[in-house]
């Protein structure tokens, strides 16, 4: 099996020949390995493509997910609403939670038009550029849109948004509705542009900041709505904050692959939501992958494989994106661990 087939087989809850290895596509990681400043990566679709292909070739056994990705960081959706964007020279762009400082501004809010608003048209151009110029064996595969809780928090302010859920529930609900609609529309428009899309990717860390009660009330309906719109495509959800307390609710949300945090115990995840959904994770991206020795990486990967691997439906990965200066040897140690301990049948450790 080639690495992508292996990945897709695990995503279908099967046992491939061996445990697939995946890292999240990252502007920081790709720029670092290609030797450019992160700002340059965003600035020029050619550099974006070259840096992506270069790093992918450097690690042929790794499936970068979502593969080619016209990534402009977490600012794309807020920019379409009118948020001010800050561009550091060698890091990802950011917005501050200042656009909706005044809760009164929320009631009249409308979802943006992805074809004309903010950075969205640039992303669409870059998608087209990348799929036109990428080599035949590297296809553009997924549409990506941040989930409603992340987008809402960026615009309203993270703490303010959490307070609204209790103090101004109607305002919070309105904001979540508009952001949910935005996620759906934005995915749809990308799917129109991508030649042969196979899936959608929705990162949304901030959902884990809600208590189970609030998540059930606000999160569950929003997620059900998003994921039910895209049947027939592979649906991947990412959340690298501790989501232990909402795992049972997430299991009802109808996505097929779950990339989760090192703070969420993989054993608990495997026994619960992991019976239904393919797991992708959850080696610690900082304390192990960035700062650990290759031996430590291999040891942690082994343990993840032995807990996550049995029965299939498991992809070895990090619980979050790879850090910029992750040592090459540690990435290689991860691949080695999958070869050594991930041959099916994998038995529990």
């Amino acid at each position: 099996m080639d690495p992508l087939d292996r990945f897709l087989s695990a995503a279908r809850m099967e046992e491939p020949d061996e445990v697939p290895v995946s890292l999240l596509t990252s502007a920081r990681f790709f720029s670092h390995f290609y030797g450019i400043k992160v700002f340059q990566f965003f600035h020029d679709p050619k550099l974006m493509l070259d840096a992506s292909l270069h790093t992918m070739r450097l690690f042929p056994e790794i499936v970068f997910f979502p593969g080619l990705w016209a990534d402009y960081g977490i600012v794309v959706e807020p920019s379409a609403f009118g948020s001010r964007i800050f561009w550091p020279e060698n890091y990802v762009p950011y917005v501050r939670g200042e656009l909706l400082e005044n809760p009164e501004d929320i009631m009249g809010l409308e979802p943006p038009d992805p074809k004309t608003d903010g950075l969205m048209p640039f992303v669409l151009e870059s998608i087209q550029y990348m799929q036109k110029h990428a080599p035949k064996n590297t296809k553009y595969l997924y549409a990506v849109a941040r989930g409603p809780f992340q987008v809402a928090s960026y615009m309203r302010g993270h703490t303010e948004f959490l307070v609204d859920l209790t103090v101004r529930p109607d305002v919070a609900r309105k904001l979540i509705d508009v952001c949910t609609e935005t996620t759906i529309r934005w995915l749809r428009v990308q799917l129109e542009v991508i030649d042969n899309p196979i899936g959608i990717y929705v990162p949304d860390d901030n959902a884990s900041f809600l208590s189970p009660g609030l998540f059930e009330k606000f999160g569950l309906p929003a997620y059900k709505r998003i994921f039910s719109e895209f049947d027939g495509l592979l649906k991947v959800y990412h959340n690298d904050a501790d989501s232990t307390h909402i795992l049972d609710l997430l299991a009802q949300c109808d996505f097929q692959v779950f990339n989760f945090s090192p703070a969420t115990d993989i054993r608990t995840v495997k026994q619960g939501i992991g019976q239904k959904v393919c797991l992708m994770g959850n080696v610690d991206p900082v304390s192990v992958m960035l700062r650990g020795t290759p031996e430590k990486v291999e040891e942690d990967c082994k343990s993840c494989i032995q807990i996550g691997g049995p029965g299939g439906g498991y992809i070895l990965s990090l619980g979050g994106g790879p850090s910029m200066e992750t040592p090459k040897e540690n990435v290689e140690a991860m691949v080695r661990a999958a070869k050594r301990y991930g041959r099916y049948p994998v038995l529990g450790g």
Partner: peptide
């Protein structure tokens, strides 16, 4: 003890 979450802590701050 995971009886309260960040949503509750934010409310407490408020």
């Amino acid at each position: 003890r995971k009886e309260y979450f960040l949503s509750e802590l934010s409310l407490a701050a408020y």
